[in-house]
Amino acid sequence: EETYEVDGEEQLKKVEKMLRDRNLDVEVEIHNGKFVIRAK
């Protein structure tokens, strides 16, 4: 499992696309105004 923490939606979209391109399962949560992306 990998976890990424990003600020802002633009970064979120980039990271999310990169992970989905690797066929990973992606979950996004918001913690303290930051996006936390978990990939399995």
Rank of each mutant, 00 (worst) to 15 (best):
E1F: 14
E1R: 09
E1L: 12
E1Q: 11
E1W: 15
E1P: 11
E1A: 11
E2S: 07
E2C: 15
E2I: 13
E2R: 10
T3A: 09
T3S: 09
T3K: 10
T3M: 13
T3C: 15
T3E: 10
Y4E: 03
Y4S: 01
Y4T: 01
Y4G: 01
E5I: 15
E5V: 14
E5Y: 14
E5Q: 07
E5M: 11
E5N: 06
V6S: 01
V6E: 02
V6A: 08
V6K: 03
D7V: 13
D7Q: 10
D7L: 11
D7G: 05
G8K: 05
G8W: 11
G8L: 10
G8T: 15
G8N: 15
E9Q: 08
E9D: 07
E9K: 07
E9S: 05
E9A: 08
E9R: 09
E9I: 14
E10M: 07
E10T: 06
E10K: 05
E10W: 09
E10N: 05
E10C: 15
Q11D: 12
Q11W: 12
Q11F: 10
Q11H: 05
Q11V: 09
Q11G: 08
Q11M: 13
L12I: 04
L12R: 10
L12D: 01
L12Q: 02
K13D: 05
K13Y: 12
K13A: 12
K13V: 08
K13N: 06
K13P: 01
K14F: 11
K14H: 09
K14D: 07
K14W: 13
K14A: 13
V15L: 14
V15S: 00
V15P: 01
V15M: 11
E16Q: 14
E16S: 13
E16D: 02
K17I: 07
K17A: 11
K17D: 04
K17L: 07
M18K: 03
M18E: 05
L19G: 01
L19D: 01
L19W: 04
L19I: 05
R20L: 10
R20D: 00
R20Q: 05
D21G: 09
D21K: 10
D21H: 09
D21N: 09
D21T: 06
D21Y: 09
R22W: 09
R22D: 02
R22T: 03
R22S: 04
R22H: 05
N23G: 15
N23S: 08
N23K: 08
L24S: 01
L24K: 05
L24Y: 12
L24Q: 05
L24G: 02
D25H: 14
D25M: 13
D25K: 12
D25L: 14
D25Y: 13
D25W: 14
D25T: 13
V26C: 14
V26F: 15
V26I: 12
V26P: 05
V26N: 02
V26Q: 01
E27R: 12
E27P: 00
E27F: 13
V28A: 02
V28H: 01
V28I: 13
E29I: 13
E29Y: 14
E29C: 15
E29T: 13
E29G: 05
E29H: 11
I30Y: 14
I30M: 10
I30G: 05
I30A: 08
I30V: 11
I30L: 09
I30D: 07
H31W: 12
H31S: 10
H31Q: 10
H31T: 09
H31E: 07
N32H: 06
N32Y: 05
N32A: 04
G33Q: 00
G33D: 04
G33E: 00
K34E: 02
K34G: 08
K34L: 05
K34M: 10
K34W: 10
F35I: 10
F35P: 00
V36C: 15
V36S: 02
V36E: 01
I37S: 00
I37P: 00
I37V: 12
I37W: 03
R38K: 10
R38T: 08
R38G: 01
R38I: 05
R38C: 10
R38S: 04
A39V: 15
A39K: 03
A39Q: 03
A39Y: 11
A39T: 10
A39M: 09
K40W: 14
K40Q: 06
